[in-house]
Design a protein around this nucleic acid. Structure first.
Length: 294
DNA sequence: CAAGGCTCCTGATAGC
DNA sequence: TGCTATCAGGAGCCTT
């Protein structure tokens, strides 16, 4: 599942292979892939055509491609299974190809290797999508203005995050997944960071001390940075992203998906609990359940 | 208004 | 063999 590190890998790939190219043609093969573009698939395709792509940006799990000489950006979210691929024109269509973007490269292209390739949005489960939006004065697509900065953003405010946690009447994993508090964290990295911090997922955020919040943020950053370093190994390929899952990092996971396997710290069998229509993985010894409040 | 739950979607896999 | 149930889960939207 693409979370912040995977999306950043995609962003870097787009920066290399797609930035500064001019859109010649857009083909929407599945209308659901552009459902957040309320004016519809034809409008989406028409508005992109003829514009040059600027430097791709990212916040949390969202990434966007600015259209030069406009105040608009193409916003992308990969959802569960979305991929942005740079493929040769001649490559056969993927089974779940949803949107194709062709470019008008005039030889010699800035990067000769970029000639003859197109951008493809492929998405099996269609939770992701593309859409076009006006930018805010900050250069952010307006529909994601409510998304918090992510933990790898230098302007992320650790103290404000801690104060927000103290005010909330919720639990720590819910807070980690709340994109209006901290963006880019999904189910996998939430479980990993909680395991590293020895925090149970149902710990009330109002009970967290400043040192614990600091430790938690440190582990979130560490695990994401490590995953990003490993995901980066795929840059040599034409594929902008890796495989739509957690890349090569899955072999480094300490908590997620390890039900019944020994905790890497204490050896106690890891547990899985149904939680919010998904799962939480944790060590019952290292991550003690909070006392039930009255 | 805050918090929590429902729903969208498809394919792999388990169980009978 | 073939059917059904379950699981994967981000985030907009709805209910409480």
């Amino acid at each position: 599942m693409p979370e912040l590190p995977e999306v950043e890998v995609v962003r870097r790939g787009l920066e290399r292979w797609v930035a500064h190219r001019t859109v010649a043609d857009v083909e929407v093969l599945h209308p659901r892939a552009v459902r957040r573009h309320t004016a519809g698939p034809d409008d989406f395709a028409h508005r992109l055509t003829g514009h040059r792509i600027g430097t791709p940006s990212r916040r949390g799990k969202y990434l966007w491609l600015p259209l030069e000489d406009t105040d608009q950006s193409v916003l992308a979210h990969l959802g569960m299974s979305g991929q942005l691929l740079v493929q040769p024109y001649s490559a056969p269509d993927e089974k779940h190809l949803r949107v194709r973007v062709r470019f008008a490269d005039i030889p010699p292209a800035p990067d000769p290797a970029a000639e003859g390739t197109e951008l493809r949005f492929v998405d099996q489960r269609t939770f992701g999508g593309l859409s076009l939006h006006d930018n805010t004065p900050d250069g952010l697509p307006d529909v994601i203005a409510h998304i918090a900065r992510d933990p790898l953003d230098p302007l992320f405010d650790d103290d404000a995050f801690h104060q927000a946690l103290r005010r909330k009447r919720t639990t720590v994993k819910r807070a980690l997944l709340d994109q209006s508090l901290i963006s880019g964290v999904g189910n996998i990295y939430a479980d990993e960071a909680l395991w590293r911090t020895r925090l149970h997922y149902e710990r009330p955020t109002a009970t967290l001390t400043r040192p614990v919040t600091t430790a938690l943020l440190g582990h979130v950053r560490d695990v994401m940075t490590a995953a990003l370093a490993v995901g980066g190994t795929s840059f040599d390929s034409l594929y902008v992203n890796i495989n739509g899952e957690s890349g090569y990092f899955d072999r480094s996971l300490d908590a997620y998906g390890r039900e019944g396997l020994p905790c890497k710290r204490c050896g106690t069998p890891m547990r899985r609990r149904p939680w919010m229509n998904r799962s939480s993985y944790f060590c019952p010894k290292c991550q003690r359940a909070p006392r039930v409040s009255s």
